[in-house]
């Protein structure tokens, strides 16, 4: 464990960057830890990793990691990452987004990135709310939940982010929570290794906004909610699965990866020239 901690520090930007901008106990820090440990397990070269993010509390993550960091505009991280990855296919490109970032303003880019299947790793920190702007409802806010802009209870239905990614054509899709830190680390590792577009949806606590408005005002209460509300996908049918959210790997499949397909297109074009 000691040894591993040293490796983690190797990937962090320690100079003047900590403490983070996040509220104490925020789940985003746990996700950052999971990403770092997954990268450390794979022994990735720092010079070969880029982290691209959008805007939001989640979007602040690239500041803390010693990779190439691109903090882009709200919702557009995947589009920026698409350009970067195609210009630098040798880089491992990690894209971290909040639920609003990825699914509201960036929803179009999200489904198209999945369909295109370029080798990017998308990590969606789903705290069911717009954290940074003060707890407004997001496309992942559960029906009936209270949000800053849903004081009478939310009347819309949330996206099932992971299943949306499956339907849109991603190569690998997984879901987990910040309570299940080891599972999270393992799934992120598999997503990074996967050739093709991969998505890991991570339920995360914004106890400051979502929690407070929904009778879980501490991080611990929200972590308990993740523990009790989710079950491994395999036991979804078996258990009193009603109303529970499945955790684990949803799909891990072989689909044509975009850059590989593009290389073939280049060969065809050059032959014709």
């Amino acid at each position: 464990m000691e040894h591993k901690r040293a490796e983690e520090h190797h990937y962090l930007r320690t100079q003047k960057k900590f403490p983070t901008v996040w509220c104490p106990g925020c789940g985003i820090g746990i996700v950052l830890g999971g990403i770092i440990r997954a990268v450390a397990d794979l022994r990735l070269d720092k010079d070969k990793v880029a982290m691209v993010s959008g805007i939001g509390c989640t979007g602040r993550m690239p500041v803390y990691v010693d990779f190439y960091g691109m903090h882009t505009t709200h919702g557009r991280a995947l589009a920026y990452a698409t350009g970067l990855k195609l210009a630098r296919p040798e880089l491992t490109v990690l894209v971290v987004m909040g639920d609003g970032d990825a699914l509201a303003i960036g929803g179009n880019h999200f489904i198209h990135a999945a369909r295109r299947n370029l080798d990017l790793t998308a990590i969606v920190v789903n705290n069911c709310v717009y954290g940074m702007t003060g707890g407004q409802y997001s496309p992942a806010t559960p029906t009936s939940a209270i949000a800053t802009t849903a004081p009478y209870g939310h009347i819309e239905q949330p996206f099932d982010i992971a299943n949306l990614a499956v339907a849109a054509g991603a190569s690998l899709v997984a879901r987990t929570t910040v309570y299940h830190a080891l599972e999270m680390e393992r799934l992120i590792g598999r997503a990074i290794q996967k050739k093709g577009f991969s998505v890991v949806e991570i339920l995360s606590n914004c106890h400051i906004h979502y929690g407070k408005m929904n009778r879980m005002s501490t991080a611990v209460e929200m972590l308990r909610w993740f523990r009790d509300k989710t079950v491994p996908i395999a036991s979804l049918q078996k258990e009193q699965g009603a109303g529970k959210i499945g955790r684990g790997m949803l799909v891990d499949r072989e689909l044509p990866e975009y850059y590989e397909a593009y290389q073939k297109l280049v060969q065809v074009a050059q032959k014709g020239a």
């Binding site: 691209v52 882009t72 589009a79 698409t82 350009g83 179009n108 880019h109 065809v268 020239a273």
Partner: peptide, 29 residues
């Protein structure tokens, strides 16, 4: 572009197009 090994990409909209262009530029293209 493909004939010289460059990348041509039709994106899902103009926002994605300019974003991808900036990302690619940061990658050196």
């Amino acid at each position: 572009l493909p004939r010289k090994g460059g990348i041509f990409l039709q994106m899902e909209d103009e926002i994605a197009s300019i974003a991808a262009v900036i990302g690619a530029s940061l990658g050196g293209a």
